[in-house]
């Protein structure tokens, strides 16, 4: 059936990622608004069980694009399979999660199809049958509305957590279309050698009631001591944004965000953190968020309950003083 909306699902270890359920939620909404059919496509090998389970829960038809060369993800095999699928099925819209895997293959897929990819969308508007996608630009300080030029298929990836997941369990008889697809040996130049898991993290911030987190604004490892002192005065866990762990000021396991931990403490105090989207997805569901930053336009203030525009080196020492008075 031509002109469908197709969610490209991402799975690992037999489980569909949460972002794919979010994409299905948005897909359902768009399908209703635009009068289109919706289905989920999965690429892999031996994934019929997963396909049936997802179809049973979601009520969607699931198209399995099966090839043994897609047992483990490689961009070239995925692109080959998906480009062929897009050419034969002529979908209207391909919806993906904006994950590291999507970032790896989707630009190539779009180029193979002579299309653009609208990445990392946080919202959409439909006006006169045209979809306008909202993206965060300029380090999250502005949103930009964009649309795709030309004809379908359109390719769009969604920011994790931006759209509610489609979570109902419909318990309907599964509809799975299994397709054996070809991947020529010659296209596979990038070889997967091994997949490694980082050693189990020793710092588990997911249970912390209070987290004090520091960012780039602290400037150096020596100055980051201020964050450790405030955390100690408040009996809090210590978190960090990516530049801190990149710079080696703190071990990687303290990183909060899309490539670190996701936390929901009762109180999150962000010091010198501008609030890149990759950080916000890891902490924006915290109970109460305090942001201290010298830049009044820093996106961290968009999610903060309390904000202080000021120098962390002036404000944080005062907070430590007061906290120590409170808890002698």
């Amino acid at each position: 059936m031509a002109g469908r909306i197709v969610v490209l699902g991402e799975h690992r270890d037999g489980r569909l990622k949460k972002i794919s359920w979010e994409a299905m939620g948005l897909g359902r909404k768009l399908a209703a608004e635009l009068g289109k059919d919706l289905c989920l496509a999965l690429v892999g090998s031996d994934i019929e069980g997963l396909a049936r389970e997802v179809s049973r829960r979601s009520g969607l038809e699931v198209v399995v694009l099966a090839n043994d060369r897609c047992r483990h993800y490689t961009p070239e095999a995925y692109c080959e399979v998906l480009a062929e699928y897009a050419r034969t099925d002529d979908p209207y819209l391909l919806l993906l999660g904006h994950t590291y895997q999507t970032m790896d293959f989707a630009p190539t897929l779009a180029t193979m199809l002579d299309r653009g990819l609208i990445p990392n969308c946080v919202d959409y508007r439909s006006t006169d049958g045209q979809l306008l996608w909202v993206r965060q630009v300029f380090n999250g300080k502005l949103n930009l509305e964009v649309s795709a030029k030309g004809d379908p298929p359109y390719l769009v990836s969604l920011q994790q957590g931006a759209f509610p997941a489609s979570e109902e369990d419909l318990k309907v008889p599964p509809r799975v279309e299994q397709r054996q697809v070809g991947v020529a040996e010659g296209v596979l130049r990038r070889k997967l050698l091994e997949v490694m898991e980082a050693v189990q993290t020793k710092v588990d911030l997911s249970q912390a009631e209070i987290i004090v987190a520091g960012g780039r604004g602290l400037g150096s490892q020596e100055k980051f001591q201020l964050i450790l002192d405030l955390a100690s005065a408040l009996g809090a866990g210590v978190g960090a944004s990516r530049p801190v762990t990149d710079g080696g000021w703190l071990p990687k396991e303290h990183q909060i965000g899309s490539s670190g931990q996701t936390v929901t403490p009762r109180l999150y105090i962000a010091c010198g953190i501008s609030g890149a989207i990759q950080h916000l997805v890891g902490m924006s569901n915290s109970g109460c968020i305090v942001a201290i930053n010298k830049d009044p336009y820093a996106p961290i203030f968009q999610v903060a309950d309390y904000g202080i525009v000021g120098d962390v080196f002036q404000v944080v020492p005062k907070l430590i003083e007061i906290a120590r008075e409170m808890r002698p």
Partner: peptide
């Protein structure tokens, strides 16, 4: 370009942030 830019907007605030003024 395959992607057309329309307009730039200030992001919607997810919360009513209470800004605290004054010296440190």
């Amino acid at each position: 370009a395959k992607v057309r830019h329309h307009r730039l907007l200030a992001p919607e605030r997810k919360k009513q942030t209470v800004m605290i003024d004054g010296g440190a």
